[in-house]
Amino acid sequence: MAVRPLSVVVRGVGLTGPGLVSWAAAQAVLRGDAAYGPAPAVVPASPRLPAAERRRAGTAIKIAMAVADAACTDAGADPQTLGSVFTSSSGDGNNCHTLCETLGNPNPADRLVSPTRFTNSVHNAPAGYWHIAVGSRAASTSLCAFDASFSAGLIAALAQVHAARTPLLLVASDTPYPEPLHTVRHLPDTLGVALVLAPVPTGETPDAANAMTLCVTLCPAEQAPPETPCRDAALEALRQQIPAARALPLLEALARGVAATVVIAAAAPLVLVIEVVPA
């Protein structure tokens, strides 16, 4: 049985990934108006962090902060006021690898773990860096649901927006593991997506170009259409390979600005059916 649908308004979007420099630059590609050009993801260091912290922060923290900042800017939202949901299927793989190497050293004297590495090893490190950097004391949730991490994050964000009736920042990001973990868990590159979501206004219709409405239903896969693929073959490969890229069909619909139905897998055997309603 499907769960009663929940609706939210999309106020802002952030995107960085392979061949997708930013949400603004990627919209023509996502609409199908320009060809997708595969290229390694370029992840900028956050200007919100002090120089020392910028050097210590790994890619997992940088990508999450970059798309969070971009979504808040796109929404014209003050990040200090926003609660957040951060979701990732893997966390900081490079840091995990280095910790394993350190702890596996045969010489006990070489098994000392640096405080920074330990701090960055926890799954909510990106959320912690973000909230400290923007001075936010709002509530934050960090979660992981393997390949369904974006869907899990969206479900959590929907529930919180409806419960609190306030805007919220959703951030989904993934970074590759180094070898030998890369062979077991192959993520080809880094990708991050962020959405600023808000309650649907009562008695009025959103009229901003970036204020489209999502009506989201959680239902059994057998009662829903198949998962929505990306229209571009290379983007579809990203969608299948990087969990955070499961958001790409939704971003395609937002970029086109027309009514659409997007189906994204959640925890099996459930899916999210998302009706995208133009402003």
Rank of each mutant, 00 (worst) to 15 (best):
A64N: 12
P38V: 12
V13T: 13
A233V: 14
P38T: 07
D74Y: 06
D92L: 00
Q240S: 06
R54H: 06
N95C: 12
E252F: 12
D147A: 13
G58Q: 02
T166D: 10
V13D: 00
N94K: 04
A267R: 13
A224T: 07
W130D: 12
A66D: 10
A163T: 07
T190A: 13
P18I: 14
V171G: 11
T261F: 00
E222S: 11
L191H: 09
P18A: 14
C100F: 01
P249G: 08
V85Y: 08
A266K: 00
S84N: 13
D69H: 00
P108M: 08
E252R: 03
R117N: 12
I274E: 13
S22Q: 02
A259R: 15
A71P: 10
A194L: 15
V271I: 04
Q160T: 08
A279P: 15
R48D: 13
E275P: 04
A194G: 15
L154H: 07
D92W: 05
P269W: 04
S142F: 00
L218C: 14
A57N: 08
P188R: 01
V273I: 09
I274A: 09
V9W: 01
P243I: 04
A77K: 05
V276P: 11
L20C: 02
D74M: 06
P188N: 01
P278K: 11
L197Q: 03
L191W: 08
G91I: 03
T202D: 10
P206R: 10
A157M: 05
P79H: 05
A224F: 11
C144E: 00
A26E: 08
S121F: 02
N120Y: 03
P229I: 01
A71W: 11
G104L: 12
A139V: 03
P201D: 07
I63S: 05
L254W: 10
V122N: 00
L103T: 13
L238P: 09
A145K: 02
E275G: 07
V85R: 03
S89Y: 06
P226A: 07
T81W: 12
L82F: 10
D110I: 00
